[in-house]
Amino acid sequence: MGITRYIVRRLMFSVALVLGVSVIIFTLINAIGNPVEILLADRPGITQEAIDAISRYYNLDQPPLIRYFVWLWNVVRGDFGTSIVYNQPVGDMLFTWGLETMKIQIPAILISLVAAIFIAVTAATRQYSRVDFGVMSGALLGQSLPGFFVGIILILVFSYWLGIFPSYGAYSTRRMLMGSGLIDGLWHMVLPVAMLAFFNTATLTLLMRSNMVDVLRHDFIMAARASGLPERRVVYRHAVRNAFIPVLTYLGILFGLMLGTAPVTETVFTWPGLGFLYIQAIQQLDYPVIMGETMIITVMLVTATLLTDIAYVLIDPRIRLE
């Protein structure tokens, strides 16, 4: 099958999936009840007329089915509605807060990928040695540490004791570090990126090491050695690329879910990202934000999965699209 036809078919499937997710999340939010009533219920002095007026303002007086299609039509036109809590257009919020999340997620994924390959190769080529044992235990332990614990340790050591990196926010509120907006921004990124990279590295290292150990057992590795290729080349050109193929799926998921997978990091470092926003939105039943963000995360995941499949075809000649 041609790659274009394959992509078209996958895109159609993706649209159906995104619509399905939107129906589910919409139904769930509706099952909770009228958010305006819930949010304002305990306020003293609020009248039923006021609640009705606000509900009308947010279209909450309409039947759910109508409201869903109104929401859908608006989304198609690029309008995600207005945040109940922030009173700002949800589309703009998703964009600015989403950029902040990507700013820490993308470097974290890339750094951990390079680190994991290097560490995993070191361990796998010395299977069952002390180095291998150390790497395995370190990665297993790292993977099982609670996220906030690692975050707090980073803050304690690097902000509180050493005073090198700021412990919260994406920018300085008063004077910029070193007088430059760019350096100031990068400086704030260091600890949150380190925390995200820590967990990614642990998982990717375990995955990559076991694949490497597996690949290194194959005859074609011995054959490459027997052909006189130096060990470095055998390991990096012949083994790593094979061992990397199963990691692609995991990498696709890391990228695909990145907007929604940093809530703990963003909370610990008060980072103005989508994970932080999502938690807030759920606590305060800011349903336009919940809907919009769920949509963005789903679209990202679906896109990343499609790109992963295409990457497979490019990297592994045995795979044919079907």
């Binding site: 005859d219 074609f220 054959a223 490459a224 027997a226 290729l229 000649p317």
Partner: peptide
């Protein structure tokens, strides 16, 4: 040894299905 292997002394392995790298032409 890398100058001996493949150049002066070479090897044919038992299982051809596994002794070529699947991802390179």
């Amino acid at each position: 040894m890398t100058g001996v292997r493949g150049k002066r002394m070479a090897m044919v392995f038992q299982n051809p299905a596994y002794s070529l790298n699947p991802i390179y032409s």
